[in-house]
Simulated scan of single mutants.
Amino acid sequence: MNPAAAVRQRAIDEIREADQNFSIMSEKQGMAKAFTTYAADDVIKLNDGAAPTVGFDSLRAQMSRQPANGPMLTWQVLKADAAASGDLGYTFGQWMLTKKDNAGKRSSSYGVYVTVWKRQRNGQWRFVVDGGNSTPEPK
């Protein structure tokens, strides 16, 4: 593999891993913790049916309104890619949001997402744009 291709492939692998770890944190520690851990300072989060959330402080405020025992969001990466420079990339995948009603009955909704990742000065990957939409349950 030539050096440029190796840089790109390493970035793809790192982005995929960051996205998977992001989902694991969301499942185990909640959406608020996961989103505020993996977001860049200049984040833009697209919100279904509402204006986007722009900037880390706005995202933290939005996430602070999530109930501690609220819905659980998890996802699976289906595709990842990166620029040849190795400093920008994206993931695309499927998500599942599981909620409990007042009687404790679970229900799930599904969708797809795309997340744009940017390598930070410290070498860590943080998302700069995240959004998705609802879909029927995957078959």
Results as ranks from 00 to 15, higher is better:
K100A: 01
L73Q: 05
V77H: 13
T74K: 12
Y90E: 03
G86C: 04
G93M: 01
P67K: 13
R60Y: 13
G86T: 02
L73F: 15
G70I: 02
L73H: 08
K100C: 00
K79R: 15
N69K: 13
N69G: 10
D81W: 10
L78P: 01
Q66C: 13
S108Q: 13
D101I: 00
T98E: 13
G104R: 02
L73P: 03
Y90V: 00
G104F: 06
A68V: 09
Q94W: 04
A83K: 05
A68S: 15
R106T: 08
K99Y: 10
S64Q: 13
A84D: 13
Q76N: 14
M96A: 05
M96F: 02
W75T: 01
G93H: 00
K100G: 01
Q66T: 14
A103T: 04
K105D: 08
P67H: 12
L78S: 04
S108R: 15
T74A: 11
G93W: 00
G104A: 09
M63I: 08
A103W: 07
A84Y: 07
S64L: 10
A80Q: 03
A103E: 15
T74P: 03
G104L: 03
A103L: 07
R106D: 12
Y110W: 15
G89R: 02
S107W: 10
D81C: 10
V77F: 14
G86Y: 07
G89K: 01
M96L: 07
N102F: 03
F92G: 01
N69C: 14
A84H: 04
G70M: 08
L97M: 13
R65C: 07
M63S: 09
M72E: 07
G86N: 04
A82H: 09
S108F: 13
Q76S: 14
